[in-house]
């Protein structure tokens, strides 16, 4: 029962992430800096990590990129978004350990994720285009941008998490899962 509940909620999270990912890339919302995005789909990845842990967050972000590729059909966007998603989810998973120990804030987890996302994307972009100066030119600006976007996604994920915690079904699927892993 609880395993199925978790599966259903993870699938829902993947769906939300795919929709946000597709709409964001279709609208082409660019901030002041070309190539910088809000990274709204990161809200869902962070939410999945907060709810079900690192592994589920990784599943959600990889599935989001794979299904997003089927919809958007752009291999460049795919290679960039996949590398960014995997690296940022990895960093957020690491930061989540510190968060659980009460050493850092959720917003810092989110900012580190956004920064890691940008770092991975710039490195892959410079590999594709065979130019190292791309990293030194774009990375500082993108890192600066990752603070407001990280705060935004972090706040959104926290409020969603608080709201979801009122839902009996989800909290039960989380709680029983924690019991299963400790057994």
């Amino acid at each position: 029962m609880t395993k199925t509940t978790k599966l259903v909620y993870l699938a829902l999270l993947v769906t939300f992430a795919v929709v946000i990912h597709t709409i964001e890339s279709a609208l082409g919302i660019t901030l002041a800096i070309p190539g910088a995005k809000l990274g709204l789909a990161n809200i869902i990845t962070l939410l999945a990590i907060l709810l079900y842990g690192f592994k589920s967050g990784m599943i959600v972000s990889v599935m989001r990129c794979a299904i997003g590729f089927l919809i958007i059909g752009n291999p460049f966007t795919f290679s960039l978004s996949l590398s960014g998603a995997v690296f940022s989810t990895g960093i957020m998973g690491l930061a989540f350990i510190f968060y659980k120990k009460g050493l850092i804030n959720v917003l810092t987890v989110s900012i580190l994720g956004a920064g890691a996302h940008n770092l991975a994307q710039v490195v892959i972009a410079s590999l594709i285009i065979q130019n190292v100066e791309l990293i030194t030119f774009y990375l500082p600006i993108l890192l600066l941008i990752s603070i407001p976007t990280g705060v935004f996604t972090g706040l959104s994920a926290t409020y969603l998490y608080k709201l979801i915690n009122k839902n009996y079904m989800i909290t039960q699927s989380m709680g029983d899962l924690k019991n299963e892993t400790t057994k």
Partner: peptide, 20 residues
């Protein structure tokens, strides 16, 4: 916010502003 939070935030800002 803990001390580690501030260290990470300031670290990123200093790194980014330095580059810019």
């Amino acid at each position: 916010f803990t001390r580690l939070d501030y260290i990470i935030w300031i670290g990123i800002i200093v790194l980014a502003l330095g580059g810019v």
